[in-house]
Design a protein around this nucleic acid. Structure first.
Lengths: 153, 153
DNA sequence: CAAATAATGTTATAGTATAACATTGCTTAA
DNA sequence: TTAAGCAATGTTATACTATAACATTATTTG
């Protein structure tokens, strides 16, 4: 994964995608929000709020928790990042989401995370839900295990 | 749900199931562990660690966080409860789990949680994972939405 | 430009969880 | 049965995660 691509490239793409999303959504990718998004992408693994905080404060940005949490909230609302619930951590999103749903493969060894697109699962979940009279609004799936890289080692 | 059943009955069942599980697993359902499990079942919704703590301290039990967190850890390891990641909360489990996997329908209105058994989803997830060379170890699915009761209101 | 709204600054505190070491209790094998 | 070893709990302190509430600054819009 990260060995195989020009990482600076995917950060650039993420940022320019974010610009476009904000135009579409009529909201503003302010310097702080942009910086937080950039740091998240730079990490390329789930990164924690207080780690972001530390990195921000080592640069010229304000370093209080609310600053970071507000930026995270904004980015999540616009589907530019996701929260990995089992880790209290945040990761960049380059998928196009029609619905509020996210699915992750999380490697317990290297901590690398891969986001899945798998409509079949959503469909099955919808069916099962409906059987129970339940109307889904948001789905989060976190699969923990071992990635192929780590399985080789 | 909770309107329709004798709740005291399901607590009893949960506790006696727990006794059996601990015999099978050769571990001990100590008074603290039992009390925590009982409180979780009494709640009948996801309950938070510090709420358990408060309830314990109002009775004759020791009221320090590690006490509760250790009991929770034990109960989770033995599949007697699950953690709802999106809520930092804990709920009783009366399913038989072969693997480490859990799936929940979480009502955003009443906060009631239903655990799902749906092997098809596990199978699909396994297939998708395998395609990526990923070996799953544990799966957690949390579906947020509206339950049938609340949809009527 | 003024008013309204959005975003950020700031202080304080709430909420969640674990580390580390001491003590007590249970088990088991000599 | 009793000492050794291990499991469980007690205890103190602290780390980590997140938000409330109000002040200030920046941007947008009539």
């Amino acid at each position: 994964m990260w060995q195989r691509h020009q990482h600076s490239q995917c950060i650039k793409e993420a940022l320019s995608k974010a610009e476009q999303v904000c135009i579409d959504h009529q909201c503003r990718l302010t310097p702080i929000r942009k910086k937080v998004l950039e740091l998240i992408w730079k990490s390329h693994k789930p990164i924690k709020a207080y780690d972001l905080l530390a990195q921000l404060s080592s640069e010229d940005f304000i370093e209080k928790p609310p600053t970071v949490y507000r930026a995270l909230e904004f980015l999540i609302e616009n589907n530019l990042i996701h929260r990995i619930e089992s880790q209290n951590a945040y990761i960049g999103c380059n998928h196009d989401h029609e619905n509020l749903d996210s699915k992750f493969l999380i490697c317990e060894q290297c901590n690398q995370v891969e986001e899945l697109s798998e409509p079949k699962i959503n469909k099955t979940l919808s069916e099962v839900s409906k059987k129970q009279g339940f109307t889904p609004n948001m789905v989060n799936i976190e699969v923990h295990g071992t990635c192929s890289q780590c399985a080789q080692n």
